[in-house]
Structures are given as C-alpha cells and as structure tokens.
C-alpha cells in the first residue's frame, strides 16, 4: 500500500492504481468522460486532469506513487477542464430533441457539473416522439431556449415561451428549424407570435430565421 495526499487528505491505496481511485477513496470527485472502469482508460478526453506534485496529469491513467500530493481543484485545472469541455462541445452537434441518450447523457451531466455549455430545454423535457409539443403542431420554443428550468411548462403541456433566453448557436437554430418546425408543419405565424413574447431579446439572425418560416407558410 502507498500513502498519497488528496487535497491534503491522507489515503492508502494499492501501488500502481490510477489516481482516480485514490481521489474517490478520499471522497472527492473529478469529472470523467472517456474513462470506463477497467474497459477503457486511454486518457483521451483530458477532462479528469489533476495536479500531481505540480504536474498536470490525467487521473484516470496516471498511477499513484508513494507520497504524491494530489490537487483536484484549482483555478488552473478548472481552466483546462472548461477549455477541453468547450472544445468537445464545439465538435458536438446538439440535437437533444431527437437524441435517444438524452436521459442518460454524460455530456449533459458534465455540463451541469462544470457549469458549462448550454443545452436546449428539450434535454430536460420528458416528451418525446409523438408526445412532443412541436410534433403536435404547437409553437414550442424549447429547442431554441437554454435549459435549466426542468422543462416545467412543457412537462405540463404548455409550449415553451423562451423565458430563460435563447441559445447562442446559429447551427442549432437552423437544425431545429429544419428538423422540427418545418418537418412538423408548425404554423409560422403562431411561432412568430410565440417568439414575439421576448422578441427584443432575440439576436437579428434568429429573428430573421423565424420570420422566414413565418413567411413561407
């Protein structure tokens, strides 16, 4: 057994185990994404970085050494984790409304843990498939609105009005228009009317996209 210090807490672990086990034993948590206990530990996502004796290393792969001083939280580490998470999100096309994994999504969990990244209300909305308000022809603004409200309105059958603000991601706007509103034939005028509620807060481009849908119908 080797002794290591996780944020000053002394723990004993078998030699050679990855740092993450010592961290968990000490009662701390580090965000992990690509690490799957015993199945995959190639240290590719670099979200679990910790400081070991001042060196930045991935907790999921780096083995413990005797007397190692491990730091799991610091401003520096936070920057790297946020940066890497944002890099990951930049390659992820958000389509929560049609995603099968939205109830068990590691990205969503991590974004909450790191307090980063915006997902649409759909990620919290329990209505899927034919139950989706948009599929029923309702002008629900959920796909364009930032989550965090537990989708209280849509849960109770009330279309989202976008009170939490829009998501700043033009790709997502266009995707939702094509995948949802146009596909299900939502009445453009109704949609515009719903968006008018917080109209002055919407960016020009989004206004234009909504107006176009309205005009086409």
């Amino acid at each position: 057994m080797v002794k290591v210090y996780v944020n000053g807490v002394e723990v004993e672990v078998p030699p050679g185990v990855p740092i993450i086990e010592a961290v968990e034993k000490a009662g701390y948590r580090v965000p992990v994404l690509c690490y799957l206990n015993d199945f995959f530990s190639e240290a590719t996502c670099r979200l679990c970085v910790v400081l070991v004796n001042g060196r930045v290393v991935p907790a999921c792969k780096f083995p413990v050494s005797d007397g190692a001083k491990i730091v799991t939280e610091s401003r520096e580490l936070d920057t790297y984790r946020r940066m890497n998470f944002q890099l990951l999100l930049s390659t992820h096309r958000i389509k929560c409304w049609s995603c099968l994994r939205k109830t068990s999504c590691s990205l969503l969990d991590l974004s909450k843990q790191l307090n980063l990244g915006e997902f649409p209300v759909c990620s919290e909305c329990p209505l899927t498939g034919d139950d989706c308000l948009v599929a029923k022809g309702e002008p629900c603004l959920g796909p364009l609105t930032a989550a965090g409200c537990s989708a209280e309105c849509t849960r109770n059958g009330v279309p989202c009005l976008g009170c939490r603000g829009y998501i700043e991601d033009p790709e997502l706007w266009r995707d939702s228009m094509r995948d949802l509103y146009e596909k299900h034939g939502v009445d453009g005028e109704k949609l515009e009317a719903a968006a008018k509620f917080f109209w002055s807060f919407l960016p020009g481009e989004l206004k234009k996209i909504i107006s176009e849908v309205s005009r086409d119908k």
Binding site: E42, A43, T44, C45, R46, L47, M83, N84, L87, L88, S90, T91
Partner: peptide, 12 residues
C-alpha cells in the same frame, strides 16, 4: 487525433 486538446484545440 487521439487526445481532445490537440485534435480539436489545434483546429480552433
């Protein structure tokens, strides 16, 4: 292309 910072970060 193995690790995220180099693969995506360098692209950015």
């Amino acid at each position: 292309g193995k690790c995220l910072p180099c693969r995506v970060g360098m692209r950015h």
